[in-house]
Design a binder for these strands. Structure first.
Length: 264
DNA sequence: ATGCCTCAACGCTTGAGA
């Protein structure tokens, strides 16, 4: 099966590009982030015409996650346990969507489409929210592995963390900024301590995001912040990975590109 | 070769993104 994750930065603006990507890439399950709409605003028909079922979780114009699958969807969850809230009154934002997919007679796989909070500034409450969010996900994901060590689970999406210095175009530029701080990197790396395997890094090198401003893409001044953590059973089945850099080109591109993983 | 920011909404300005 081919899994992909893509921060689409508004599905309503990008639907033609996303459908074209699905058809071009032969993707079975696509996890999307930043759909920026409610379920009733999601362009569901275009996906169904292309042969995909859709699960959508969106509350308003901010955030929003979805999964499109041409394998039957058998279970959907719109948050993880103890997912932290943001704002006053507190809201569990639309940043996590877990979808189980299964073809009859085959093993099931659970794909979590994740949009980790940005953090904004190191001294901003949003940064503390980001760390709490990552730590809560880590704690819950640990229980999933403990409950079923052979489960095929993928934690995919926009992690909003650049795990190494090589994952940003200039560490000097990011000094004192989010995405590269020690606590964020530690929170990301902690998943590996439980057996989660980030399966893209050994197979492909590229950035996954380039800011719209200041010619960041033509200058290749990007960041690698979109990743696929696979459970041990799924990681053992991985045969390939890719970053579709070309999707950043041209008019109407998202600022992120798709990250793809193949697994038997 | 990619091209100097984009998106949605309480909209003609603002908040958010990273």
């Amino acid at each position: 099966m081919r899994i992909a994750t893509w921060n689409v930065n508004s599905i309503r603006t990008r639907v033609d590009r996303v459908i074209a990507f699905l058809e071009r890439s032969d993707t079975d399950v696509l996890a999307m982030q930043e759909i920026k709409c409610r379920p009733d605003q999601f362009p569901r028909a275009a996906f169904e015409e292309a042969g995909y079922e859709v699960a959508v979780h969106g509350l308003n114009q901010w955030n929003g996650v979805a999964v499109a699958s041409r394998m039957p969807i058998t279970d959907v969850r719109d948050r993880f346990a103890a997912q932290p809230t943001w704002g006053e009154p507190p809201v569990v934002e639309a940043r996590a969507l877990g979808v189980t997919v299964q073809r009859p007679g085959e093993a099931s796989s659970t794909i979590w489409s994740l949009y980790v909070p940005n953090g904004r500034e190191l001294d901003h409450p949003h940064y503390r929210y980001k760390l709490a969010w990552l730590r809560a996900l880590h704690a819950d994901a640990r229980t999933w592995l403990a409950a079923d060590p052979g489960a095929r689970i993928a934690l995919v999406g926009d992690w909003n963390v650049a795990p190494t210095d090589q994952d940003v175009w200039d560490m000097g530029f990011f000094e004192g900024k989010t995405h590269v701080s020690g606590p964020e990197r530690a929170a990301f790396a902690a998943f590996a301590d439980d057996g989660w395997v980030e399966v893209t890094r050994p197979l492909v090198t590229n950035y996954t995001y380039w800011d719209y401003q200041q010619l960041r893409f033509p200058r290749n001044e990007g960041m690698r912040i979109d990743f696929v953590y696979a459970s041990p059973a799924l990681a053992a089945a991985v045969t390939g990975a890719a970053i579709d850099r070309d999707e950043r080109k041209g008019k109407g591109a998202s600022d992120h590109v798709p990250v793809l993983v193949d697994a038997d």
